[in-house]
Design a protein around this nucleic acid. Structure first.
Lengths: 346, 346
DNA sequence: GCGCTCTACTAGCGCGCTCTAGTGATAGAG
DNA sequence: CTCTATCACTAGAGCGCGCTAGTAGAGCGC
């Protein structure tokens, strides 16, 4: 690493002077603080002329409303908290659509991500500290007890996680249906040795696992049922590949926990010289944008991220407005997207 | 979409009751509010016994410190604002390491992402509204004027963007060196028709473009120089592929603007039946974790995300502590990672 | 006894804003 | 001319906390 010192004009200007407040604007514009407040809140009760003058003064002295003070003073914060896992490309899709819908409904969004060193509880604490009016949790892995507790104290919407008899709203796709379609399709192509890498305790995993078993049974393939434990990261795909490659024979098709898992699996298979889909077919889950873009198009179960995000925000806002309405579960239909990682068995 | 109403136990419990405050805790614990404050700030001056009792009471009544009130009351917020583009996997890598370092230094982080409907200015406004003590901008595309202005008013650290004669700190890799290494390597493999898809106005693009030209010239390939305009998204790779495929002959190697661009390109080439690396070699830039995991390992110029994030946070904190120190430019060496998308020309 | 320090705590102001309850000025109705 | 309505604006309380200044009491040396 090298380090350079840039000359620059350090000593000039307003550098780090005290941040201007509403009072500064008021004084300079020759009006009361209350009026400035009113104008910045877009509330009626100020003449167009004054309004303009206040905005001009504000711009001139570089005033920005202070979110903290605003939050503290007002009963409403008009803020939604979104918990996500920044590594997850599908979450990126969801976040984008959340923003769009929140904008439409006049809400702000604050993000809080989990990272390896920062678990879901910390992420949630940060959001609640910001006085979010509702939480939107993207694929939460937290315990059911904690989730239930949380939803008793705050409006909570979970995306991609179904909680039986829950007190919280949830928005997700019909996991079972997606898996069933995938298995039906693979069987239709002639596969019989279809295994499943599951998502462990990840959101939706239990349903997918169950649906896989049911679908296999339906096709009379009960004895071929096999689940390799995994999770929702690339690593689990990699790991599953190692397990499979150590054995005598590969299955002809693999149903991965999600796209990330599928990508990890594909990477490892490719390194081992296994041809996809000639030797093994691979199906993902999510259809995050990367799946589409990867140079071999991944066959995957499409979840409508845009709609999921939109509905989650709508549901959150409705929940804020009527806290005691019964909990809702919104279920979208998934759709199998056949691309290039699947074909007839070898 | 289907909708279900879940019974749930809506009417019980503390649902949405007034949020408990420090006074509630104080009262219930039989101490003054000031003492509770002190305890929650981890400040010395309370007996271990009282401390424990206060924490117990707080937990019992579900008290959480209010970030807004805390921010408002204290001069310091100990908060760093990070602007990112959530779609960008490289940013995910950076954010993770920022968190780790901020944790170490006792700072909080608040995230603000750009999305298609929410530009950089809005993202920055949100951060400043939260009274962040410094801004860390991941690959900002904003105008130089705005950036300079911003850095005059607040501590700002830019990652992956170099601003000549700047008043702001920047942390980035030696773009030129990475590109030079890539070109040297390709030429060493026997390539002569090496083209570059550039990153438009994206961070680092100008330097990379310039370095590409210089490197080609150095190898006596001045006449083979060719730059296809692009940007830092998958789409630009796709688009460049279309341009190239429409022509009589493909180049033997392509230096993409970044990994995302390279992935788009690979996808399109694959669909067109062009073999990589047999017919065309492809080199990316960033080495975001996806590059590694993609089932064909992408040859790319590695940027040390962990170190970049770490240094950005350190620099931001140092800037907060000494606002008038000269601006610094921290430059890390990149490193070519040869994987599977490159080889000798056809 | 005195003054001293140290520990464990409390009183109360003010951060920048929102929001309710006003005030005064002008206009139109009766 | 009074009465009410409307408009443009203001006064001031208080949101939940941090923080400075202070106090009460215990312990200690002399």
């Amino acid at each position: 690493m090298t380090e350079q010192h840039v000359p620059g004009e350090r000593s000039t200007g307003t550098r780090h002077g005290k941040r201007p407040t509403m009072s500064d604007v008021a004084e300079k514009a020759g009006v009361s603080r209350a009026l400035v407040s009113l104008i910045f809140r877009n509330a009626p009760g100020a003449s167009e002329q004054t309004r303009q003058r206040v905005f001009d003064v504000a711009k001139e002295i570089g005033y920005r409303p202070d979110t903290a003070a605003r939050t503290l003073a007002s009963s409403r914060t008009k803020t939604l908290g979104v918990m996500l896992t920044i590594r997850n490309p599908f979450h990126a899709d969801l976040v984008e659509s959340c923003y769009a819908e929140a904008d439409r409904l006049g809400y702000d969004i604050v993000l809080s991500t989990t990272v390896p060193t920062r678990g879901e509880e910390r992420a949630v604490d940060a959001l609640l500290g910001h006085r979010c009016e509702a939480l939107i949790l993207l694929g939460p892995k937290m315990s059911e007890a904690y989730l239930t507790q949380l939803s008793r104290e705050h409006p909570v919407v979970a995306i991609s996680r179904k909680v039986p008899d829950a007190t919280l709203d949830s928005v997700h796709t019909a996991e079972a249906k997606g898996v069933r379609e995938a298995v039906d399709y693979l069987v239709g192509e002639g596969h019989r040795d279809i295994i499943h890498i599951d998502g462990g305790t990840g959101p939706g995993s239990a349903e997918r696992r169950k649906a896989y078993r049911a679908a296999m049974r339906k096709h009379g393939l009960t004895e071929r049922i096999r689940v390799i434990p995994g999770n929702h990261t690339e690593d689990s795909g990699l790991h599953a590949a190692q397990v499979l490659l150590d054995e005598d024979a590969l299955p002809t098709a693999v149903l991965a926990a999600n796209d990330r898992c599928a990508l990890g699996l594909l990477g490892a298979l490719h390194k081992a010289g296994v041809k996809v889909p000639q030797e093994v077919s691979v199906v993902g889950y999510d259809d995050s944008r990367v799946a589409m873009l990867s140079h071999i198009g991944l066959t995957t179960v499409h979840q409508n991220a845009e709609e999921l995000g939109r509905l989650a925000v709508r549901t959150a806002v409705e929940r804020i407005e009527s806290p005691d309405a019964p909990a809702r579960e919104l279920v979208l239909d998934p759709e199998l997207r056949v691309r290039d990682t699947t074909g007839p068995p070898r």
